[in-house]
Each structure stands twice: as C-alpha cells, then as structure tokens.
Design a protein around this nucleic acid. Structure first.
Lengths: 353, 353
DNA sequence: TGTTAGCACTCAATTAAATAGAGTGCTAAT
DNA sequence: ATTAGCACTCTATTTAATTGAGTGCTAACA
C-alpha cells in the first residue's frame, strides 16, 4: 500500500484524532491541525483519494471521515509512533509481577494489570499443560476406592486428579511406582511422556507385571487429562460496558465468548506460534464477536521458550500506541517473573525435537 | 397484611400476568380473566385499594398496574401456587448431578443447571473451607526452598499450597510430621484444627522441638489459608442481557458484583444460616446492583449438615413458581450427590460444640 | 352499601414537520 | 496543483399533532 507522504500525515492525524474523540473528522479540522499549509478543499480531495483506496469512509454524506479496518491496519503497521510506557505504569507492573508468587497468581496478576491499565479487557493464556515438562508424580490414597494423583510440572504448577482404580494398591507399591516415574521421565515434555507411556503399554503388554501396567495406565490418565483447569484468565470484562461502538448485542456475544473461551483460546494459540506482538483488527480475527474489536497480543516465555500469550481486547478504536506498549511490557515482565522466580531449580530438559 | 379474598385473586392474577407479559395490566384485562363476574370499574376500585396498600402502582396515570416490591413479597409468601418441576427437567438434573463426579465438578454442574433451566444466572456457594473437616495432610518437597502442602478435606476436595519454609526438612521428617497430624486431627473441623494449632504453639512454645514447632507453623499456614480458590461459581451471566427491566448500567453493576463476588458471598452466607428456601426481592437484599433483581436461594447439605447455598439471580419479574422449584430440586439433588458419592468413607467427626 | 355504566381526562408513544449545523462534492478561478 | 465558494445532503434536535390505552370520578342502580 503506497500513498504519498502528505496523505500519510493526514491519515495518521485523522486516525489519532478519531481514536481520541470518537467522532468523524472533517476536512477543516484536519486542515487546522495538520501543520501543512493546505486548505480544507485540498484536504477533501485527498480524503476522496483515501476513500477510494478504502482507508477511510464517511458514515454519511455530510459527516467527516472515519478509518476503515484497512486504515487501522496501515496505521498500526507503518504510521504508528509507539510511545514508551509511562514509568508509573512500569513500576506498577514490576511491583505486581514481583517474584515470590506462584505461577497461577502471576498469570492472574498479569491479566488484572492488563485490564486495569488499559481500562479494557485483559486476557492471559495459561501455559499448555501438555507442553510443560514433567517434574514429579505422587499418589495419595484417599480411600480404598479413590486415589489422588498429584502432578507437578517444571513450571511449578500443581495438578490434581482423583482416580478410581479397579484394584487397590499398597502405599509401598504406589511409592515405588511413583519413584520409577519420577526417575524415568523427569524433565520430559508431557506430550512426550504420554507417547512414551502409550508405547510402553503397547510393547510390553504381556511381559509387564500387572501392577506396573495398571500404574502406567493410571499415570497415562493423569498426564493426558484435558478437563477443567482454566486455560485462559480473563479480567475486566465489565470495562467493555459503555463503549459506544460496542452495542449491547455485541457485548453479549463477547461475554459469551469469554465464557466459552474456545475461540479465544484458538486465537491466542494462533498468535503464540507467530510470536512477538500480534494485532487482530476487526474481522481479521475471523470471529464474529470480535467484529468491532481489536485484539493486541504478545507471547510470553519461560526461560526463553514461548509458553503462552496474553493480550488486550477492546474496541477497534483503541489507543494502540499505549496498548501495544502495555501488552509488550507486561509480556516481558511476566516472562521474567516466571523464569526467575525460583521454581526451576532442576536442569532444563533438552528441547524436544 | 390482610386483604379480602377477592382482592387476593385479582392481585395474584395481576402479578402472574405481569410476569408473563411484562406489560402493566389494566382493569379490563383483569375483568376478563379473573373469572369473577365483575366490571372493570369495580376492578378499578379494588386496584385503587391495592395501590393504597402499596401492593401495586401505576407507572403513569393511564397505564395499568404493576406489582411493587411489597406486592411481589405478598405474592411469593402466600399467593403463589408452586408448580412441581417438569419431570423432563428433573431427569436432566438427576443426570447431570449423577454420582462419580468430584465435588468441584458437581458444584459447577449445579450452577450450570440452574442457569440453563431458568435461563437466568446460576450461583453456587462452594462449601467453606474452614468448616470442612480435616482428613489428610501431606508434604511434598518441590525444591530445597519450596514445599508443597496438600490438604484433603472430608468432603473430598483437595487444596494445594506452596510453602517457603525457612529451613529444609528431610522427607522422613515431613512424613513423620504429616502422620502425626493425620492421626491427631482427623475428622476435626478445620477451624478447630486451627485453634488447636494456635494453642499448641502458645502453650508448648519452649519445650517443643524446633522441628515439630516449625511444622506446626507450616500446617497452620496451610489450614488457615484464605486466598484463591473460588468461593462461588457463577454461570449464565450473559442470560441477563436483553432483559428490559435490567438496563445497561445495572447490568454492568451486576457483572462487577459477579466478579468481585464479595457481596454475593455475603448474601449467600446470610441465607445459609437461615436454611431452606429464601427469596430476596429487589432492594431486600440490601445491595444496589440487585435493586431490580430477585435472588432465590436454597441451602444444600452434606450428610445432613448444611454446607453451602445455591440460587438463581434474575429480574424481579421472574417466574417464581418455576424458579423456586428448580432451585429447590437442584439443592436437594446436589445434597444427595455430594453425600452419596463415596468420598466419605471414614466415620463422621463429632459435631463441634 | 356494593356495583356498574359512562364520560372526561391524562399521559406515553408515535408520527410529521421544521430547523439548524456540519461537512461534503464540485466548479471555476488562481 | 491549489483554493474559494456555493449548492447540496444528511443527521440531529426540537416542536407539534395524533392516537390509544386506561384511569378516576360521578351518578344511577340493585
């Protein structure tokens, strides 16, 4: 998309002003503030060009212009002057993401920060369980029929699951089995552990002792568990009330999306693969509820490995300069907090190929 | 509040009709459907009486009447004919609250059921941690500096907490300490365990071995933990969109209340003490966000002991007959599911005085 | 004394018309 | 290429007129 520098300046000004005011911007206003010595008539000509290119449009004949989705896209891609985050906010984030919190708390704090600072909705995708590295498994007998399996992953998170095995095991048997696991699979990514378990179930199906076999089956159940455990933390949903470009019907769709979390998750995973900062404007996300919204995401990492994404959802007309830096800084500091917070004191597993 | 039977019939009809239609009900309509051979003029006289009593009011001079909060109160207290729940719904609830689910899942299922069947918002207050009975404590070394404490309560719930003790303990020491706890406090209510721990810290402060003392301190931290762990499960918030008597500002307040959960919790606790079915109409709850809403609650129990409450939040103009029976049945079946589901296979603790 | 018919009245809701204002597109001149 | 200027369009707001539902009140009636 090539447009001449003068048109660029005007488009930038128009979008900035529209984001600030929320009203269509007219040619006179632009003429006054552009710093170019141009009359409003000239501006109108340029606007007509921009409209032809699909970068702006008029809500109706006698209104000023507003940016189109394409206009916003050009804006964030090449016009935007990213503003460094106010140090006040940086301090706030640093403070809240200070060490000495458990991972889950950190994620929740990050989500809360995103929503509070931007006054929009904050979203954090919790690291995928199955991509975490295995650290420790432990069985606890709850009752003759119930067994509590406790799985600790390298990132410091603890996962519980109650099992109802078909037979009973002595504490000694369970301890032994757990020890075996912990020794064998420590540091391996959970998906790989699972593969290994499935393999061993296939291969040794006959010569394996039935006890071991049963325990392997249980471990498999624990490791491959899908249900429950929130995969995404959403905060500040109610900040989306009272935003004029999000009407009640949209709002409802959005809230339903926040509850389902399915689509959100998909979108976040998408940008996890992309890495870095990612911006979905309007329908670019491909999800109807986000039609009039933008979604600014960044991925965060644990010891250099990308493990999740976080971001901010708000109206397409959002202050991108600020939001982008807030998302960026939060992602960085969260990465730092997760990595440095002392949960990892075992050597890292080799990266899985 | 005494009113004559004829007025009662009319008030009941008026409220039923208003709940069904959402429009002020006029005297002609009432005259036609009341089954009393009365002219609209007579009805108007009666309405004037009811208005004087504060049971109905006119939105304006030439509209019909709508119930006031007081009117609704009288209605639910003595006019209401409770309709047994459609067996289709009963089956649904029975199915979803079938045994073989973990407690947390049951609570979530109950909340989902409430919201889906009523098409309003379902709320379940999770049993208070500190009122649960102690069952099992276990320590797990995560790293030299971090210790995972796992607390299992009699109701089958599992609580984790990461501790950062000032010194390190050998696995043997931890096992021993845990064993001691499990033997000593099994079956006791958590609040009482806590009291006992605090006492023992005070009394034996000098002659206690430092290891034991430290472990007692850790256990105390685990048992008395407050943070995290959702105390109330809310479902179907978005069902409140598009209800005409709940405007956008109210809706926002409601959603904020759902997020904070503080007020909700307080209200639920209130009705836990009352036991049975409880209905808060409009401002009766004392919380502004619930101004135009009603809150129908019932308490549920575990083995005969009330441990929590659940309910439905919707507009004051809600179909009480149905909502009440749905809430009632859900509470009963949840109680059953929680009690019978096999988590309890130890003898019950003596009731605390 | 309770009930009813009937009529005047009130008020919200809807429609229609009038007005003001912002901002455009286009043309002709520079 | 730029600009002044004017006709035009469309929204938003105000005002007025109309309709209809439903009431309150009164006077007559059982």
């Amino acid at each position: 998309m090539m447009i001449n520098p003068r048109a660029e300046i005007l488009l930038k000004l128009l979008i900035e002003r529209y984001i600030a005011e929320g009203q269509p911007v007219g040619s006179r206003t632009l003429a006054k503030h552009a710093g170019l010595e141009l009359s409003s008539a000239t501006i109108r000509n340029i606007m007509a060009d921009l409209e032809e290119l699909g970068l702006v449009r008029s809500p109706h004949t006698s209104a000023g212009r507003v940016p189109t989705q394409l206009g916003y896209r050009l804006f964030v891609d090449s016009l935007l002057t990213i503003r460094p985050l106010q140090s006040e906010h940086v301090r706030r984030i640093e403070g809240d993401l200070g060490a000495d919190h458990e991972p889950q708390q950190l994620l929740e704090a990050a989500s809360a920060l995103l929503s509070q600072i931007t006054q929009l909705t904050g979203v954090v995708r919790v690291p995928r369980r199955d991509q975490a590295a295995f650290r420790h498994l432990e069985f606890l007998t709850l009752s003759p029929k119930r067994l509590l399996a406790i799985l600790v992953t390298q990132d410091g998170r603890v996962h519980n699951r109650v099992l109802q095995p078909t037979r009973t095991y002595s504490p000694a048997q369970l301890t032994e089995a757990a020890n075996y696991f912990n020794a064998t699979y420590s540091g391996m990514q959970l998906t790989d552990v699972r593969k290994a378990l499935v393999d061993s179930l296939k291969q040794d199906s006959e010569d394996m002792q039935s006890v071991i076999r049963a325990v392997v089956e249980m471990a498999n159940a624990v490791v491959s568990e899908v249900r429950g455990e929130d995969e995404v933390v959403v905060s500040g949903e109610s900040n989306l009330f009272g935003i004029p470009e999000i009407d009640s019907a949209r709002l409802r769709q959005l809230f339903e999306a926040f509850n389902t979390k399915q689509d959100l998750l998909h979108l976040l995973d998408q940008s996890m693969q992309a890495g870095g900062i990612q911006i979905f404007i309007g329908s670019e996300s491909g999800y109807e509820p986000l039609e009039d919204c933008s979604f600014v995401t960044a991925s965060y990492s644990l010891d250099g490995r990308v493990v999740g994404t976080l971001g901010v959802i708000g109206p397409t007309r959002m202050p991108y300069e600020q939001v982008i830096s807030i998302v960026d800084v939060t992602a960085r500091l969260l990465s730092g907090a997760l990595s440095s917070d002392g949960y990892i004191d075992f050597p890292q597993p080799p990266a899985s190929s």
